[in-house]
Design a protein around this nucleic acid. Structure first.
Length: 863
RNA sequence: GCCGAGGUGGCGGAAUUGGUAGACGCGCUGGAUUCAGGAUCCAGUGGGGAUACCCCCGUGCGGGUUCGAGUCCCGCCCUCGGCACCA
C-alpha cells in the first residue's frame, strides 16, 4: 500500500510554510485587480463551533480560488470582542472580562490557524482594543455634531436579567435575544442614531443589491424599513387650542371617521385625562398597556380603550367625534394618534363593536352595498366612495389623491410617508463595551469629549457587581472628569455602545488596521467594497442594516466613497444534527445510545427517540466539536465534508459516516499520487494535440478538461462547492479506471497521467489546501500550489467526439445510439429506425412527426 | 393572516436553457483478502413484474400546456424560516 496519509503532520508542515513565506499577506497593488473576501467575524465565546468552520471554510475556498485567478485578495479576520457573555463569565468565574476575552481569542485563533484558513493575520484586531474603538468614538462625536446622534427619553425595551436596554431588533417574540427573559417597557433616557434619516436611501439602494444578495434578505430588510405612503391629517380638539395630528394610509376613508384613538403614551392623552379628572385611570390604563405589550403585539390581548371625555372636530364635516386612548395604538409609529374608521379597518371595527361606537360605510365594493348593521368584519379593499360629500362616486384610489389635495388646499393635512423603521438606540447600561465619549457638565450640559482626548478608555480596574450591573456609575476615577468646554467639574457618560456599533464598520478598518487615523482614504479606496461577504442568515436585518447605515454615514462624513459596503452576500445555512432523547433520561449524547438504538444510561435500555435534525446546541447534546474532528481526520477532511454535504445556502446535516467518506476520498487520492509519484516526478504534462494517444488516454484528457471547466464554473458562478467536488471525484474515478485499462507502455501515458493529476490537485486545492500542497510536491512541482495559477481548459480537448442520442417513440425512451458528434438528422433517423427495439414499438403505426434535438435525442411521434 | 424558501431513492444531495430522473457521496447486499474483526478492493443497488431479452410505474397531491414536464401554467396539501394590531 505504501505511504500512509498522515493529515496532522502534513497540515502543520504547510501551515508553517505559508506563515513563514507570508503567502497571504497583502498590500495594495494598483497593477492587480483586488478582491475582498470577508466572513462575519466571530464573537470570542471560547471555542469555535461547526457553524464557524462552515462559514470560514466557504470564505477560504473563495479567497484561495480568487488568488489563483490572479486577484490581489484581502482576506482578514478579527474579533467582535465586546459584549455581555464576557460579563457573565466574570460573574460566574471571577475572571475579568478583558482576560476572559483575550484568552478566548488566543484559543480561537489557534483553532482557526489549525484549519489552515488563508487569513492575512497581520491585519487582525479585536474591537475591544482602544486603538479600534477610539475611532468609533470619533465617528460618534462627528455624528453628534451633525445631529445624527442624539439623546432622548423614550419607552425602551428593558431586559431585567441583563440590566440593559435592547434595540427593537434585539427583541424576539417579546423576549431578550440573548437570554430569553421577557422584556419589559421602561422609560429611559439614552443615545440614538438617526437611522430614520437614511430610511429612504436604505430602502432604495436595496435595488442595487438585487441579484447579488439573497432575495430573502432583501425582502426582510424591505419589510423592516416598512415604508408606507399616506397623509397626515389634523383634527381640532373641541374646546382646546391643541390639535391632534393623525397618520393614515387611507385618506379616502376620511368621511368614515367615527372616533379618534390616541396612544396611552400620547402627551395629549394625559392632558385630556387631567381635564376630565380621570388622570388616575389613564395612568393605570397606560401601565396595563405597557405590561401587556407582548400579548398586544402578538394580537392576543383584547383591544381596550379609555374614553377621554373629549371630542375631536372632523376637518371636513365639522362633526364631533369622541377621543379614546387605545391600547393598540403605538406612540412610536406615525404620530401616535389614529383616525378611526371602523367600517374599513379591522382594528377600529373590533374596537367600535366593543364600545358601541357608530360604524359608517364610506367605501362600497364594486358590486355590492355594505350594511353597517350586518357587517361582520371591516371592508378593507378598494371600492367606490359613498357618503363622502363632494367625493362620493369616486373610485377610492382616486379619492385618496383628491382628498389629500383638498386637505392641503385648506391647510389641515398633507401627503406623508411613514416608516416602520425607528431610530437605533445605542445606549447600553453595560460595562464591557465602548464608552460613549460625552460628559455631563453642570454648566454646559451634554458636551462631547475633545477629539485629542480620545480614546475615552474603558477602565480595566473595575469589577462587575454581584447583580451583574455595570461598575462604571460607581467608579469615581472614571466618573469624575472636567468639562472639555469650560474646564469645570463634569461627570462622564457611563453608558456604553451597543456592540452592533463595532461590527458596523470593522470591514472598512481591515483596509488599514494600524493607521493612526480612522480610515486611510487610499487604502479604503483600493480595497472596498467587500466583494464577497459570507455569514449566517440570523444577521439578515440587525447587522447588515446597521453596516449599510454606517457606510452611508461614513460616506457623508467623508471617510468612505461608497454607498453600499457588501457587493455580494452569501448567507450560509446552519449546521444541524439529529438529537437523541430517552423517555426517562432526556437528551442523550450519541455515545449514550447503543448500536440498536437503546439508552445506555444506568442500564436503562429504553428505546431512544431520534429527533429531526436541528441546530446544534449543548442543551440537546447534539453538538460536534471541531477540535475532535480535526484531531481524528485532519482539517482537510473536515473542510471537504463541510463543502460536499450540501450547497452553502442550505442547512448542512452533520453525518459521522459522511465525514468518513470524505476522509476515505482523501486517503485514496493520497495513495494514488504516492504510488505514481516516482514515475512522473520528472515528466512534463502532456502538451500534444492528442492524435498520437490511444483512445482511453484521449478520453481521460477529455474528462480532465471537462472537469476543469465544470469546477471553474461551479466556483465562479454558483459557489456550489458540492457539485465541484463531485466532479473532481468523478475524475478520480475515471482516472482509476483508466489506470486499470491502459498500459504504461502506451505513448503519452505518463504525460497524460501527469496532466490529470496536476489538474486534480489544483482544482481541489482551495478546498483541501494542505494535502494538495503535499501532493503538489510529490508531483515534483516547484513552488506552492497556493501561489500557482488556476488551470485552464481547452474546449477543443473537452469536446465529445461521440455522443449518445436517445431514441424515443411517443416520448418514451426505447433505445440509445452512439454516434459521432454532429451527425445530421437524416443519418440519426436512419440508424434509429433500424433499431429492432424501435421497430417493435413502431409496428403497425404511422409516423406522424419526428422531433430531432441535435446532440440529444430523436423522438418519433406515431399512432 | 401576510411574505419568502422548500417537498426528488433507505439517507445527504445532482439534474445550470423543457430533452436518458437519481451524478457524487453515505448506507445496504454479495464477493475478494483476513484465524477473526477492522481497513482496503471488486460488483450490484428507485419500486414492481419477468429473472433471459424486456415491460409497467415513479420527482408532495389533482388538473393543464407540450412530441416530451422534477423543470412551465392553474388549484390544493405539507414542512421550514421571517413578519405580524405599523393605522
Amino acid at each position: 500500500m505504501g505511504e500512509v496519509y498522515k493529515p496532522e503532520e502534513i497540515e502543520i508542515k504547510w501551515q508553517r510554510i505559508w506563515e513563514e513565506k507570508g503567502v497571504f499577506r497583502v498590500k495594495e497593488d494598483p497593477d492587480k485587480p483586488k478582491y475582498y473576501v470577508l466572513e462575519m467575524f466571530p464573537y470570542p465565546s471560547g471555542r469555535i463551533h461547526m457553524g464557524h468552520v462552515r462559514n470560514y471554510t466557504i470564505g477560504d475556498v473563495i479567497a484561495r480560488y480568487k488568488k489563483m485567478r490572479g486577484f490581489n485578495v484581502l482576506h482578514p479576520m478579527g474579533w467582535d470582542a465586546f459584549g455581555l457573555p464576557a460579563e457573565n463569565a466574570a460573574l460566574k468565574h471571577g475572571v475579568h472580562p478583558a482576560d476572559w476575552t483575550y484568552d478566548n481569542i488566543d484559543y480561537m485563533r489557534r483553532q482557526l490557524r489549525r484549519l489552515g484558513f488563508s487569513y492575512d493575520w497581520s491585519r487582525e484586531f479585536a474591537t475591544c482594543d482602544h486603538e479600534y474603538y477610539r475611532h468609533e468614538q470619533r465617528f460618534f462625536i462627528e455624528m453628534l455634531e451633525r445631529g445624527l446622534a442624539y439623546r432622548k427619553k423614550t419607552l425602551v425595551n428593558w431586559c431585567p436579567s441583563c440590566h440593559t436596554v435592547l434595540a427593537n431588533e434585539q427583541v424576539e417574540d417579546g423576549a431578550c435575544w440573548r437570554c430569553g427573559t421577557e422584556v419589559v417597557q421602561r422609560e429611559m433616557e439614552g443615545w440614538f442614531f438617526r437611522i430614520t434619516a437614511y430610511a429612504e436611501e436604505l430602502l432604495r439602494d436595496l435595488e442595487k443589491l438585487q441579484g447579488k444578495w439573497p432575495e430573502k434578505v432583501l425582502v426582510m430588510q424591505r419589510n423592516w424599513i416598512g415604508k408606507s405612503e399616506g397623509a397626515e391629517i389634523e383634527f381640532e380638539v373641541d374646546g382646546l387650542p391643541e390639535k391632534i395630528t393623525v397618520f393614515t394610509t387611507r385618506p379616502d376613508t376620511l368621511y368614515g371617521v367615527t372616533f379618534v384613538s390616541l396612544s396611552p403614551e400620547h402627551p395629549l392623552a394625559e392632558r385630556l385625562a387631567e381635564r376630565a379628572g380621570i388622570k388616575e385611570e389613564l395612568l393605570a390604563f397606560r401601565e396595563k398597556a405597557r405590561r401587556a405589550r407582548r400579548e398586544i403585539e402578538e394580537g392576543l390581548a383584547e383591544k381596550e380603550g379609555l374614553f377621554l371625555e373629549a371630542y375631536a372636530i372632523h376637518p371636513l364635516t365639522g362633526e364631533k367625534v369622541p377621543i379614546y386612548a387605545a391600547n393598540f395604538v403605538l406612540m412610536e409609529y406615525g404620530t401616535g394618534a389614529v383616525m378611526a374608521v371602523p367600517a374599513h379597518d379591522q382594528r377600529d371595527f373590533e374596537f367600535a363593536r366593543k364600545y358601541g361606537l357608530p360604524i359608517k360605510v364610506v367605501i362600497n365594493p364594486e358590486d355590492a352595498e355594505l350594511d353597517p348593521e350586518t357587517m361582520e368584519a371591516a371592508y378593507e379593499e378598494p371600492g367606490v366612495m359613498v357618503n363622502s360629500g363632494p367625493f362620493t362616486g369616486l373610485p377610492s384610489e382616486e379619492g385618496k389623491r383628491a382628498i389629500v389635495e383638498h386637505l392641503e388646499k385648506i391647510g389641515v393635512g398633507r401627503k406623508k410617508v411613514s416608516y416602520r423603521l425607528r431610530d437605533w438606540g445605542v445606549s447600553r447600561q453595560r460595562y464591557w463595551g465602548c464608552p460613549i465619549p460625552v460628559v455631563y457638565c453642570e454648566r454646559c450640559g451634554v458636551v462631547p469629549e475633545k477629539l485629542e482626548n480620545l480614546p475615552v478608555k474603558l477602565p480595566l480596574n473595575a469589577q462587575i457587581d454581584e447583580a451583574g450591573r455595570s461598575p462604571l456609575p460607581k467608579l469615581e476615577s472614571f466618573l469624575k472628569t472636567e468639562c472639555p468646554r469650560c474646564g469645570g467639574p463634569a461627570r462622564r457618560e457611563t453608558d456604553t455602545f451597543d456592540t452592533f456599533v463595532e461590527s458596523s464598520w470593522y470591514f472598512a478598518r481591515f483596509a488599514c488596521p494600524d493607521a493612526k487615523e480612522p480610515l486611510v482614504s487610499e487604502k479604503v479606496h483600493y480595497w472596498l467594497p467587500v466583494d464577497q461577504y459570507i455569514g449566517g442568515i440570523e444577521h439578515a436585518i440587525l447587522h447588515l442594516l446597521y453596516a449599510r447605515f454606517f457606510t452611508k454615514v461614513l460616506r457623508d462624513l467623508g471617510y468612505l466613497h461608497l454607498d453600499e459596503p457588501f457587493e455580494k452576500l452569501l448567507t450560509q445555512g446552519m449546521v444541524i444534527k439529529e438529537p437523541y432523547k430517552c423517555p426517562r433520561h432526556g437528551w442523550l449524547y450519541p455515545e449514550e445510545v447503543s448500536e440498536s438504538g437503546t439508552c445506555l444510561k444506568e442500564g436503562c435500555g429504553e428505546r431512544v427517540i431520534v429527533g429531526r435534525p436541528e441546530k446544534m446546541s449543548k442543551s440537546k447534546c447534539n453538538v460536534v466539536d471541531p477540535d475532535e474532528m480535526i484531531k481524528r481526520y485532519g482539517a482537510d477532511t473536515v473542510r471537504l465534508f463541510m463543502l460536499f454535504a450540501a450547497p452553502p445556502e442550505r442547512d448542512l446535516e452533520w453525518s459521522d459516516q459522511g465525514i468518513e467518506g470524505a476522509f476515505r476520498f482523501l486517503k485514496r487520492l493520497y495513495h494514488l499520487v504516492s504510488e505514481w509519484s516516482e514515475k512522473i516526478r520528472e515528466v512534463e504534462p502532456y502538451s500534444g494535440d492528442g492524435n498520437d494517444l490511444p483512445s482511453e488516454l484521449k478520453a481521460l484528457r477529455r474528462k480532465t478538461h471537462q472537469t476543469i471547466r465544470k469546477v471553474t464554473q461551479d466556483l465562479e458562478e454558483r459557489l456550489h462547492f458540492n457539485t465541484a467536488i463531485a466532479a473532481i471525484m468523478e475524475l478520480v474515478n475515471h482516472l482509476e479506471d483508466t489506470l486499470k485499462k491502459a498500459s504504461p507502455e502506451a505513448p503519452g501515458f505518463y504525460e497524460v497521467l501527469k496532466e490529470t493529476l496536476r489538474a486534480i490537485v489544483l482544482l481541489l486545492s482551495p478546498m483541501t489546501p494542505h494535502i494538495c500542497e503535499e501532493l503538489w510536491e510529490k508531483l515534483g512541482e516547484k513552488g506552492l500550489v497556493a501561489e500557482t495559477e488556476w488551470p485552464e481548459w481547452s474546449e477543443e480537448v473537452a469536446r465529445e467526439e461521440e455522443i449518445t442520442v436517445v431514441v424515443q417513440v411517443n416520448g418514451k425512451v426505447r433505445d440509445q445510439l452512439r454516434v459521432p458528434a454532429g451527425t445530421p438528422e437524416e443519418r440519426v433517423r436512419e440508424l434509429a429506425l433500424s433499431s429492432s427495439k424501435v421497430k417493435r414499438h413502431l409496428e403497425g403505426k404511422t409516423i406522424r412527426k419526428v422531433v430531432f434535438v441535435p446532440g440529444r435525442l430523436i423522438n418519433f411521434v406515431a399512432n
